[in-house]
Design a protein around this nucleic acid. Structure first.
Lengths: 227, 227
DNA sequence: CCATCATAGATAGTTCCACTATCGGATAGC
DNA sequence: GCTATCCGATAGTGGAACTATCTATGATGG
């Protein structure tokens, strides 16, 4: 297919497709003549993936490019690709070093030990978590950190489900793409579910247990007041 | 305190503080003379909250401003404030309408019913979830949608924990701020924990059950390959 | 075979966002 | 008085993600 049809099928404007090719996010079409190239369904799929990571996952084009190029490169061993993915999928707050951050790191290490997780507490994910803890404390909501264990307990089955999804894939590219999609879009999925569950939990807490179906509250329910 | 000290204590540059005041994110200092103003610990706390929502939560300044101004305004009833928060904390993908989106909406409604949630499936959170489902399908990862129930089951205890945290607050402003912080920073916290749990689950799945502590794998472990 | 349309590739421009720089005049505190 | 700091205002910066325009070339249809 030509670029016009690719644009129509993916919903991405032609100049934007050209821009993505320039930025190395999308391989160029197969040139059939000096000013004519043909694109296939692989391009279409890649384009949809880019838009999902961009719009839903909120990744930057630079991050998407790094990840996708690593996925494409057959030279890269799988674990390297996953390393790139882990780094680029993490906002990586870092923050200014200090005793606060050291304390938070220590708490993360204790949590990992407490739950018996086989994970490095000082890897990208652990650093990210420590950054969040510091930010919560700095924002005056240190109490929220007490929920860490509850959150960790909920994260375990989610991680197992993710791995289960990824485990069903065999081809290298499919595998890696599964990890990326699971990490990025799975996060968006959980986030939406969490907000839905907030409405439910709030409804039960403030409207009383005995009342009827959803939406019966008069506004006390958290998040229920949509407009 | 004067603006210089506020800057030193919060780590935010003076011109940036002035910028936040101009944008209505931070109340102006108390003028003690035509060109002298004094700031208090409330300003400092607010400033830290802004930075947390911006850096960790990834909210835009516009969204932060809407939420904080609603929180500040004593005219606004609590449920209105929570409505504003819910809307601004949601990326609100919307996406183009079509049969795909209708199908996804239907699935969300079925999920809500299946779990017995007292929540409107067509509120902001439900719409957001439907958008994610559509994006997953469009990106060629419709299979991931099968994890919806696992994710929903994990979201329930998290939502209960959040509500429990919020429930401990009594003052109106504290309550609302708790919701905002819980929703935004709690998401970042869960996200980091989920990635940590990925490392663990991957280690167990690929490195064998019997091996020793963390980090022992040779790279097959998801995300374990940090830089 | 010729008019019309789409395309490749290149360069430059736009919009939004989150700051950052500079300035003129006033004040604080020694 | 002197210097550092401050207020308020205006203007400028840099990055991100496009978008517009242009030229030369080729495809398509009557």
């Amino acid at each position: 297919m030509r670029i016009g049809e690719l644009s129509r099928r993916s919903g991405v404007p032609v100049p934007t497709i050209k821009f993505y090719v320039r930025e190395g996010l999308l391989p160029a079409g197969q040139l059939t003549s000096p000013n004519q190239a043909s694109y296939d369904s692989g391009h279409e799929r890649r384009l949809r993936l880019i838009r999902a990571l961009l719009d839903i996952g909120g990744l930057s084009l630079a991050a998407i490019g790094d990840v996708l190029r690593a996925v494409e490169d057959p030279e890269q061993p799988v674990h390297k690709v996953l390393g790139v993915a882990a780094k680029r999928l993490t906002p990586l707050q870092g923050g200014e070093p200090g005793p606060e951050l050291d304390d938070a790191r220590e708490e993360v290490a204790e949590l990992v030990e407490r739950r018996g997780w086989r994970a490095e507490a000082h890897g990208p994910a652990g650093e990210c978590l420590a950054g969040v803890i510091v930010a919560l404390r700095r924002a005056g909501h240190g109490g929220f950190v007490e929920l860490l264990d509850d959150y960790a307990a909920a994260a375990e089955p989610v991680a197992r489900a993710d791995l289960d999804y990824v485990g069903r894939r065999v081809a290298r590219e499919d595998l890696v793409e599964g990890v990326v999609v699971g990490t990025v879009l799975g996060e968006a999925m959980f986030s939406a579910l969490r907000r839905l569950a907030h409405v439910d939990a709030s409804s039960r807490a403030y409207d009383g247990e005995g009342e009827g179906g959803p939406g019966g509250g008069d506004g006390a329910a958290v998040h229920a007041a949509g407009g």
